[in-house]
């Protein structure tokens, strides 16, 4: 039986969902979990500091898991990039990625120098195949 008691919350859910945007880096729960296009990998990242600061260096920790539950392959690597699609440019830095075992990676030297809409691109390579996870995010001061 539908209770009127929950109507405000339901309306809130509907209206707020309809307002979906790229993850605002100031929000409390950034959308930092996803899967690669093709579905082979589940990808999760965290940043330090969080949220991502505008135009300052930050570090990332990435965890990649095969969707089928198998162990992360020994030859698996991750490459990280970020682009501003509407500006047709990326970062002014080339970050470095360090493998820490079991599908965990640390990324040093990230920096997003402009406010606006960015796409964080995580390419997971294993053997001859590469699959990309794309995380849209909006950077504001």
């Amino acid at each position: 039986m539908f209770s009127m008691r929950f109507l405000p919350a339901l309306l809130a859910t509907v209206l707020l969902s309809a307002c979906a945007r790229p993850a605002d880096t100031r929000s409390e729960t950034p959308a930092n979990v996803g899967e690669t296009l093709g579905g082979r990998w589940s990808v999760r990242y965290e940043t330090e500091p969080a949220p991502i600061p505008l135009n300052e260096p930050f570090r990332m920790r990435i965890e990649v898991k095969p969707a089928d539950g198998s162990p992360f392959p020994a030859d698996g690597t991750v490459a990280v990039d970020a682009v501003m699609p509407t500006h047709s440019h990326g970062m002014n830095v080339v970050p470095r990625t360090f493998a820490e075992g079991d599908g965990r990676f640390r990324v040093e030297g990230m920096q997003l120098h402009m406010a606006g809409d960015w796409e964080l691109l995580l390419d997971v390579r294993a053997g001859e195949t590469v699959q990309r996870a794309t995380f849209p995010l909006r950077l504001e001061p």
């Binding site: 135009n55 402009m114 406010a115």
Partner: peptide, 13 residues
Amino acid sequence: FLCHSGPNLTDRE
């Protein structure tokens, strides 16, 4: 603001 950002009104880039 996109390039002239921050307290010195420059992204320094």
